[in-house]
Amino acid sequence: MTTIEVLTRPRTGALHTSDPADPFRYGWRYVNVERSDGFSELRQEPLTLEDLLHPQEGDHVTHSDAHQRRRRYLCNVFEAQLAQDPTAVVLDDVRVAWDVPDLKPHGPDIAVIIGVTQRQNWSTFDVAREGVRPALIIEITSPETASIDRSHKLEEYDIAGVPLYVIVDTVVLRRQPMLRLLGYVQTETGYQVLIPNERGWLWLEPVALWLAVEAHELVCYNAAGEALGDYQALATALRQESAAREEAEQARIAAEQRAAAAEVRLRELEAEVQRLRDAK
């Protein structure tokens, strides 16, 4: 059997909002289609917003550099915070299948799960099979896709029983992109707004951290109010600390060498003075 890769136009759907000029703006998936002539076509099909809401395994979703950077930062901080809990996992861009009838799977940007019995290489985290659901889900929006995070997922994560849902929302104010945090905590009557503190920070109970926006970027703080940098920031700080220690060590050695030279010179002068006294 021969496989041929072809491109197809976007499929129709409830959230079909493709751009004819850029049909693959949200991403793509490959679909294997058998033809009547015995050939098999591997079709690259554009994703729609409906596909972003309910993805399939193997979907390729496009993200901006800022989106990926923020997701990496949160994942790194959360994993470090939960490192001592062997039942805790932090999944990013992993499909989650629910145990609620008729509720399709989602692909959250970040899912924090507490109580996992055995870590696996999940492509889909099956809540029914694993016996535990995410304690925290975070979605990082873009202006083009924010609507499904603010509306569809807000409703469906509530139905799925996710206790805490946080949206890192990008909005455009005066033509400038800005970040804001929207938090929702589950109650008996459904999601209620998570009230920030006086600084606008949101408390993320499952990871015991504050989440804030400063200078248009995400910053996590521990319970003591100390900022937690990402891996790159920590690596830079370590390099700077190492360089400072090396500089201090070099300065100490240089000072010791100067002191030793001064001691030698002092002894030479004392010897010269003594020689002059003896010559009289």
Rank of each mutant, 00 (worst) to 15 (best):
E130I: 06
D92S: 14
T124M: 08
F125A: 04
R119S: 08
R150W: 03
A146C: 00
W122V: 06
Q120G: 06
N121T: 15
F78M: 13
E79D: 15
F125V: 04
D85G: 01
D93Y: 09
T87Y: 08
Q84E: 14
S151M: 09
F78S: 05
D85P: 02
D109T: 02
I138V: 14
A80R: 15
R72P: 02
R119W: 06
K104N: 10
G58C: 11
T87C: 00
D65M: 08
W98G: 14
V132R: 10
I140T: 07
N76W: 11
R150V: 05
D93N: 15
F78D: 04
A135D: 15
N76H: 12
D102N: 15
P143Y: 00
D109H: 04
V100L: 09
D126L: 04
V100E: 11
C75M: 07
R133V: 08
I148E: 09
I138Y: 04
V96M: 06
T124S: 13
P55M: 02
A128N: 06
Q120M: 08
D65P: 06
Q84V: 04
I138F: 06
Y73W: 09
R119K: 11
G58E: 12
H67E: 02
S64M: 08
W122Y: 13
V116N: 05
R133P: 00
Q56M: 15
I140K: 03
I110G: 03
R70E: 04
L74Q: 12
E57I: 03
R133F: 08
P55Y: 03
T117I: 14
C75I: 03
A66E: 14
P55S: 05
P101L: 13
R70C: 00
L103G: 06
V100K: 10
H106D: 09
W122C: 06
L103H: 11
V112P: 07
A135S: 14
A83I: 13
L136M: 10
V61Q: 13
P55W: 01
H67S: 00
V61N: 09
Q118W: 14
T145Q: 05
V61S: 09
K153W: 01
H54E: 10
E139Q: 00
F125P: 01
G58A: 12
P55F: 02
V96W: 04
H106W: 10
Y73M: 06
R70T: 01
I148T: 15
I140D: 03
I114D: 00
D59R: 10
Q118M: 15
Q84H: 11
D59L: 13
S151C: 07
Q120K: 14
R71D: 07
R72C: 02
F78A: 11
S147Y: 09
K104R: 15
T117Y: 13
Q68L: 14
A97N: 08
L82W: 10
R72S: 11
V116W: 04
A111H: 02
I114Q: 02
